[in-house]
Amino acid sequence: MSLRSPLGKVLGRGSAGEGVGHWWAQRASALLLVPLSVWFLVALLELPLTDYAAVSIWMARGWNPVWLALLLLSLCWHSRLGVQVVIEDYVHGPSLKFASLLVNSAAHLLVLAVGLYALLRLAMRGAT
């Protein structure tokens, strides 16, 4: 156990430089989502959604898997950061808050992994 005070430990170390990291990440992902989400919505409008062949070909064609992967990545990133702030504001009690934050991160990571795996499968099928 150290006898140094918490203040003594951090003095002179400078700031971690990460204080505004969350804020910037939320804005950066929001900016990315502006064009990506518009592109996705327009594509949805034009796709015959019940037609499996048309949809799966579209998902695998050209740069579409890349844009879809970017869309998923920025969606999950932005969503995780946003839900995190909501939890921090409304969930009280340190252990419940910590658990909620953990579940939030894990759930978003899982959704992202499943989505990217699906895209990979679709794109690889298109390549053969």
Partner: peptide, 24 residues
């Protein structure tokens, strides 16, 4: 803004379900 954000976070599950079903 918060309510719609949290609501759309749940929508991610549907989006990924749609993608995964196409991959399946």
């Amino acid at each position: 803004h918060r309510i719609t954000g949290v609501w759309m976070a749940l929508g991610l599950i549907t989006l990924v379900y749609w993608l995964a079903s196409a991959a399946a």
